[in-house]
Amino acid sequence: MGYKNQTSSSDFTLLGLFSFFQTSLVSFLFIFVIFVVTVAENTLIILLILSDSRLHTPMYFLLSQRSSMDILHISNIVPQMLSNFLSDSRTISFAGCGFQVFLSLTLLGGECLLLAAMSCDCYVAICHPLCYAIFMYDSVICLRMTLGSWSLGAADGLVQAVTSLSFPYCSAHEIDHFFCEAPTLVRLACADTSVFVYVMYICCVLMLLVPFSLILTSYSLILAAVLRMCSTEALRKAFTTCSSHLAVVGLFYRAAIFIYMRPKSYRSAAHDKVASAFYTIFTPMLYPLIYSLRNSEVKGALERWRGKCINLKHQQR
């Protein structure tokens, strides 16, 4: 096979999720509906948190940031994917591919850090409730956690995107994926990538496993505190507060670790595509449902919002 260096004017070809999946109108409509529902759900969560004063707490502020990341994440991938459904070329520009790698890694790392921040919020709320108002209601602390999540995620995304696109690529430029993802892109490199793979593992340890360890530690301490509670009502409230977060953590980390932490010898393009579709397309749609169905405060805010809309409608008549 011939080789040539990648230039800024060259395009990559995205082979898609599966060959049969690319040509089906039903598949297009399925992905389009998921995209619309996901954006609508997360936008609703953000609007509820902004408009309802009872949700102006650190936990819901962090949740609104996660919803913003989910909107960006699915918007980074699905429009290009839908465009490829309608086009025979299925190409993406060099710059567009680099932006997808950068933004997907930025949001992946940012969500890991936000989930860790949310676990710390739960820990302080349950284990040190008297100190909660002092520590977590400090707007500077919340702002620092949010900015830290975005900025560290962006730094990780920038380093990996620039490095992965700096290799010479094989002449086919065919990416066996439905979007540009760093591990898949590196497989096309016609050079020794062992150093970059090692650096990628270090980044994954810092951005995935360190926050995950913090989450496990926080919830281990929460579990110990909950088991010591004598009040059934306090036990129920603590379980309700944490169960939604734990469900999201389980869904998110299972797919992310599968994609970025597996040894190269165990990698399969088909498995990678399924796992990537799970955490980039399907789970952002599930997160708002998990939070709203398991959270009485979110459901209460939704009912109050509906009541305001009904009253406004009656007043206009």
Rank of each mutant, 00 (worst) to 15 (best):
V37L: 15
L15A: 13
T38Q: 04
S220A: 11
V197S: 12
I92L: 13
V195L: 14
S166G: 10
A117R: 03
Y291H: 14
C127V: 15
F30D: 06
F32Q: 12
Y123L: 15
S119I: 03
A161T: 01
Q6P: 00
T193S: 15
D121I: 02
C120W: 04
C203E: 06
I46H: 05
Q315V: 05
D192F: 09
D138T: 06
T217I: 04
C120P: 00
L14W: 04
G153E: 08
A189H: 09
Y266K: 06
L25C: 05
V197P: 00
L216I: 10
Q80E: 07
E297M: 12
L143P: 01
C309D: 07
A277I: 02
G148L: 07
P263V: 07
M285R: 04
L188Y: 08
N76H: 04
A238T: 10
N76A: 15
L312W: 12
R66P: 00
A277G: 14
I290S: 09
R144W: 07
I202F: 14
V159A: 11
R294V: 01
S243L: 11
S68C: 11
V248N: 09
F102R: 06
S19A: 14
R317C: 05
K264Y: 09
H128W: 04
M118G: 06
I222E: 02
H128N: 11
S265N: 02
M207Y: 01
S9T: 15
C170G: 07
C204I: 01
V226M: 09
L235D: 02
H173R: 15
L62R: 04
Y253D: 08
T38G: 05
G110Y: 03
A40W: 09
S75D: 03
G148Y: 04
I46L: 06
K299Q: 15
D192Y: 06
F20C: 10
D88K: 10
L208N: 12
S10L: 01
V159I: 14
V37A: 13
V226H: 08
C131L: 13
M69I: 11
L312Y: 11
C131Y: 09
I175Q: 05
S166K: 02
V33T: 15
M207F: 01
F12V: 12
E111F: 01
L48C: 02
S19K: 14
M118R: 10
N42M: 07
M81P: 00
V205W: 07
S87I: 02
A154Y: 08
C230F: 04
L50M: 10
H173A: 08
T184C: 10
R228T: 06
S24W: 08
S149D: 07
L221P: 01
L289A: 13
I74V: 15
G109A: 06
I259N: 04
I215N: 00
Y253E: 12
M145D: 01
F135W: 13
V140K: 15
S265P: 00
F282Q: 00
T146E: 02
L48V: 06
L235S: 09
H73T: 15
P288S: 07
A191R: 13
C142W: 01
V124T: 14
L251K: 03
G98E: 11
L48I: 01
A234N: 12
A155H: 05
C131W: 09
P263A: 06
M261E: 07
L29Q: 13
F61L: 09
Y60V: 03
A225W: 02
I202C: 07
T184H: 05
T232W: 05
C309S: 13
A155F: 14
A256P: 00
T241N: 11
F61E: 08
L105P: 00
